[in-house]
């Protein structure tokens, strides 16, 4: 396979990983109005949990369970969901932005644990030799990447369908009612807190799944994979794509990741080696500006959520 095509496959696998994170965040933010600043933290929980469950026995370290890889992914989802339940139970009854601050704290603490809790996370060197599914069956890494792209595509599709079914059903209607008018929903006897908590946990589980899939794709994870910049990228993707729909989440992920990769390649080409670090910083400034500009100029993103009101109700207003 020519270089460009094999790079495209790699690019798409990473873009779909981001798409999963965006889908999780779209449920939390777009459909429930929950502000999660700890995306990188939940992603990391999923990745580390899955790596520890499926990974080999590292000397002097907890783990080595060698479980089948799909079980590792489920474990990653469960771990992220449990963390979300704990944080959510504590903050979802309080002011809206307390959740933002608390999830930001979660990401900071997870980063600290990843760096320092060597017996569990391998510290700064991270965890290596994480099993990749059916890797031995494929002659080349390109063939494996192609297989993984197919796997990611079907899993993203599956999660998308599942989330779509959830929000179209009665559970999702209550969710939207809460987002639009919490007091009214409460007055109708809807359990607002429980719905929020469920949405937060499900969204975080999807992020945990993304982490598990990422770990089994690269076979190696380290603390620098889970920095605050990741949270920021995912937010930029969701805002640009449009937070009110899952299609927007996936589209935003691919579009912003393409912009990110292209600007990175451009900086690589144009700037001399001594200015590479500053160039990478400029790239982040660029995405920051794109995010801010989208918020100011096109607050609903590329794909706008269809109005929830029926045509008749809208006429009557």
């Amino acid at each position: 396979m020519p270089d460009l095509a094999s790079y495209l496959v790699f690019f798409l696998v990473v873009a779909l990983t981001y798409a999963l994170l965006c889908l999780g965040l779209a449920l939390q933010w777009g459909f429930t109005g929950l502000f999660n600043v700890g995306v990188a933290g939940f992603f990391a929980i999923g990745a580390y949990a899955s790596a520890i469950l499926t990974g080999p026995d590292y000397p002097g370290q907890f783990g080595g369970f060698g479980l089948p890889i799909p079980l590792g992914w489920l474990g990653g989802m469960a771990a992220a969901a449990v963390a979300a339940l704990a944080v959510g139970a504590l903050t979802l009854r309080l002011r809206q932005d307390y959740l933002a601050i608390a999830t930001f704290g979660v990401a900071v603490v997870i980063q600290l644990l990843a760096l320092n809790l060597e017996s569990l996370t391998g510290g700064a060197f991270g965890l290596g030799f994480i099993p990749r599914p059916l890797f031995g069956r494929f002659g080349s890494s390109t063939a494996f990447n192609l297989f993984y792209l197919a796997l990611m595509t079907s899993l993203v599709g599956l999660v998308w369908l599942a989330l779509e079914a959830l929000v179209r059903g009665p559970w999702g209607r209550v969710l939207r009612a809460i987002r639009e008018d919490e007091t009214a929903a409460e007055a109708l006897g809807k359990p607002v807190f429980r719905h929020r908590l469920e949405s937060f946990a499900i969204g975080s589980a999807v992020m945990g799944l993304a982490g598990g899939l990422y770990a089994s794709f690269t076979g190696f994870i380290a603390p620098q994979d889970f920095q605050a910049i990741l949270t920021f990228q995912v937010w930029a993707m969701l805002i640009v794509g449009g937070a009110g729909s899952f299609a927007g989440a996936v589209l935003g992920a691919v579009a912003v990741w393409a912009l990110w990769t292209a600007s990175g390649a451009l900086i690589d080409q144009l700037l001399p080696a001594a200015f590479q670090v500053r160039g990478a910083a400029l790239q982040i400034v660029l995405i920051g500006v794109v995010l801010a500009a989208t918020l100011v100029l096109r607050p609903r993103g590329l794909i706008v959520e269809r109005a929830a009101l029926s045509a008749r109700a809208a006429d009557g207003r």
């Binding site: 920021f232 937010w235 982040i284 400034v285 995405i287």
Partner: peptide, 12 residues
């Protein structure tokens, strides 16, 4: 969200 984006932009 805007402040979160502005923070990263400013720092970099």
């Amino acid at each position: 969200i805007a402040s979160f984006g502005a923070a990263l932009a400013l720092r970099h």
